[in-house]
Simulated scan of single mutants.
Amino acid sequence: MVQKIVHDWATGKIYPHFQFVFSFKFRDLNTLNCSINLSNLIVVFYPYLRNALDYIWKNPERLLFIFDGLDEFKSKIDFADNCTEQQHKCPDPDVRCKVSDIVYSLIQHKLLPGCSVLNLQPSQFLSGFLMELLEREDSVRSVVYTFPHLTIQEFVAALAQFLTVAPRNIVKLLSEAHSATDGRFEVFLRFVAGLSSPRSARVLEEFLGPFPNETTCRVIDWVKEEIKRQAGNTWSEFGKRSLLNTLHYLFESQNPALAQQTLGSVETLSFRGLGLTPIDCAVLSHVIRWRFGLLHGTVISRIGECQIPRARRSNPASGLVEPLRLLMLPTSFSRDYEFPM
């Protein structure tokens, strides 16, 4: 990831405002057991810049320092403002101190105020390629990176849940988000459910490492319990909307087996009084297919503008093919929807 950042910067794709980018691996910094100043540290890893340091230090706002592998660093760095006085002793690039003090002083802007620092570790969601999704906003006092689109922010927030080593509160977090009546967390929850799919996670795991199996299992279990709970609570509009949203999570998980487990005993999915969008109908179509294990030979009937499968299934006991009454749809999206299962 660090190599990609540096390469894209060098080729002018990202961060054109930075004149110099210095990349360090904490694994390499562990070999420096003596006190050192920042100037000498640069010379150790970038010896060809020895004679240019005075020029480089004149414009700290044009500098980006990347420290990779924070979890591998043997020394402790206290990033809090109230840390020990020992980590306040690097106000100048020529002052000798511990490597941990240099890193701390750069981050706290006690050394080279105005420079930017990026610490990377496996559990940090602002890692590598995700930095390209951020926009830089400069002000007189600080530099802030923001997301150009809310959807990207929701995705990164969901991804962060899978990059946490001990996701003890993931179920509580999901339940609280799902209980919001204004739907502000729906996109986030759909992303979380989608990332529980091995197929979806596989591509990201190539860059970020394997997702904790504990997190994936807890997300799947949460979706399963929510579907069971919501399926019998459709007497109110809020209950129907909650069930529909939960079925969206099921769809994003791409888990047919989970659909059969959770909806196997459900006789009717009722959305009477809700206005279903084409996307809602597509989700219901897939969920119903999974519920009955319909993989081949399913006939899609177009009713109004909503595509929901009409299908037949075989009865193992009689050897006959029985019709499945999966839908009763009007021609308008704003009326009654009830799906006998």
Rank of each mutant, 00 (worst) to 15 (best):
N119S: 13
D138K: 08
L208D: 03
S100G: 11
S318E: 14
R202H: 11
H296N: 15
A257Y: 06
P47T: 00
P330C: 07
Q124V: 00
I220E: 09
F162H: 04
R190Q: 14
R62M: 06
T234C: 15
F26D: 06
L32T: 02
N213V: 12
S242R: 11
R289L: 15
E72K: 10
P16T: 11
A193L: 04
Q87L: 10
P91E: 12
T246D: 14
D94N: 13
N82G: 08
L130V: 12
E252T: 01
D336H: 09
T268E: 01
R272S: 14
L327S: 12
L276A: 07
H149R: 11
L29Y: 01
S127D: 10
L326M: 10
H109E: 13
N30P: 13
E72H: 13
V165P: 14
V219M: 00
S314W: 13
G183P: 01
R291G: 10
L329Q: 07
R312K: 07
R312G: 08
T181V: 10
N59L: 08
F271R: 05
I42D: 01
F45D: 03
R335C: 15
F65H: 00
P210Q: 08
H109K: 11
P330Q: 05
L189I: 08
S39V: 01
Q254M: 12
A311L: 02
P309H: 00
V103F: 03
F26W: 06
F73A: 06
K89C: 09
K25C: 09
S139D: 11
L120W: 00
F207H: 13
F26M: 12
R190I: 05
L263E: 03
S314A: 11
S265P: 02
R325K: 07
P330A: 09
L243H: 02
G128C: 04
